[in-house]
Design a protein around this nucleic acid. Structure first.
Lengths: 268, 268
DNA sequence: CCAAAAGTGTTTTGGATACACCCATGA
DNA sequence: TCATGGGTGTATCCAAAACACTTTTGG
């Protein structure tokens, strides 16, 4: 190799090294940043009192060595962030059974990654309780009792939990946390785990039925050791997110088309 | 300048130019992207039938020359995206009176900017009706009758309008669209513009009063040309976003503390 | 026959809507 | 005094909650 090539190569190598740690601008002066996707994978665990849990893995390198972090990874040049999210979960955790996922928010504090500025877009991913993930250093943690988290990941988990808590009240999002078929008692546990307060099975059943979210499968489930009436098995009517209760307040009203039946007196 | 420096400079210049148009990876193989913030600035315009309008400016260069685009700009190396948003609106449009702003979502389709891959984080910004903005080629457009928009900006506006429409039903977000003091009639127009259906003043007043969102200032507003009773002037109690109606469905219930007064019979 | 678990029937509650009616002003 | 617009009172509606009661199983 010529002396010229060597010197240029050397210059480029130094330049490259600088780019990795310093903010990089192209010749038009526009800065470029690393961009990663972050997964907040949640499930409801029902051994004991039901609780919402998040998937995390333990870091082996600085920064934040030893702390727990959310699954994450870079975005490839020809893929969307949604696709990147799916790809990282599939390749790193063998996780291909996320039942619902949606974008949460993007985090841009300049020092959130002390090694290099990295903008992160967080996703919420919901899985059923008994979902297998591979990897040795992974664990599930109750979202309200997190261990020491790396980066701003604690904040991200809190946001995800709040989002889920809101959405479970006005949508059918619980479909993504429940198995294909379930008893009302099991569904109740899921709601309790997310909402963190008691839920009346009777009313839960009637609310979800009225909204057309769930329907009985016709099958029965045998009772446990200590007897009891066998439970009916239910399923969610739709397995995609649907807003079932667009806010009741200040709604259109008046137009009979939006209400179906109206003006049927004598019921009170 | 030495021949050596010249040759290195030249190599770097070529390298720089390549980086600007091709996906860039640092030496660790991680791709870096341009990242911009996008502003969806909304107001309710009440001349005629009230309508929600968005601020846009006309492009003078390719790509999408002649089309209308949302205000946008890059994120500086030491600022958060929130700060970048505020900075671009202030410097480019003299707009420093955004009453409420929040992150909407990030957009990452690889070809959304045909010139170079750019990830964009969109923000919702709300202003009062008579807010001045500088700039010659800016205009306000009804969100449901947009002109041909550049990039994916039409989609972004639609998302923002939906977000606002939802939030106005369960929060005090209208404070950011209304002037400091207003009559109930004026507030009604704002709600009609956002919700796109008629709103009963009487009920609007009672709902917002019960929720503690608005209060009378004590002042009266003189009636118009054709007479009429003078209207009371109101203000929003808080000028920060507050969720006033955390979802009524499947709420905690039972605990008397969460309800205030209970068990007062004889009202039915 | 009893305990346990599932499901049904019925009452109560309270926010929200609809609408008739009263009040204050200008011409 | 009348048209116009603002504000109040009240009946109605209905989803949700509360809870007592019935049904079906295991021991």
């Amino acid at each position: 190799m010529s002396s010229y090539r060597l010197r240029v190569d050397n210059a480029l190598r130094q330049y490259h090294a600088a780019v990795r740690t310093l903010p990089f601008r192209d010749t038009s002066g526009v800065a470029k940043y690393r961009h990663e996707v972050l997964a907040v994978v949640l499930r409801v665990c029902t051994g004991g009192s039901p609780r919402l849990e998040v998937l995390a893995w333990q870091r082996h390198h600085e920064p934040f060595e030893g702390r727990w972090a959310l699954p994450s990874g870079p975005v490839e040049v020809d893929e969307t962030m949604d696709a990147a999210m799916e790809r990282h979960l599939a390749t790193k955790l063998d996780l291909t059974t996320v039942r619902h996922s949606e974008q949460l928010a993007s985090f841009s504090a300049p020092l959130r990654d002390p090694a290099e500025r990295t903008i992160a877009t967080a996703y919420l991913g919901l899985v059923a309780e008994h979902t297998e993930v591979s990897g040795e250093e992974v664990g599930w943690f109750a979202t309200d009792r997190l261990p020491a988290m790396a980066f701003d990941h604690g904040e991200v988990v809190a946001l995800a939990a709040r989002r889920l808590q809101g959405k479970i009240s006005y949508s059918n999002i619980a479909f993504a946390l429940a198995p294909e078929e379930f008893t009302l008692a099991a569904l109740r546990e899921i709601y309790i785990g997310v909402l963190r307060h008691d839920v009346d099975v009777t009313n839960l059943s009637r609310v979800l039925s009225r909204r057309g979210q769930i329907e009985p499968t016709g099958r029965l489930v045998a009772p446990g050791d200590k007897g009891g009436r066998p439970a009916r098995s239910y399923r969610f009517v739709e397995r995609r997110l649907r807003i079932t209760d667009p806010f009741a307040v200040l709604r259109a009203g008046g137009s009979p088309s939006s209400q179906g039946h109206r003006g049927a007196p004598g019921s009170h």
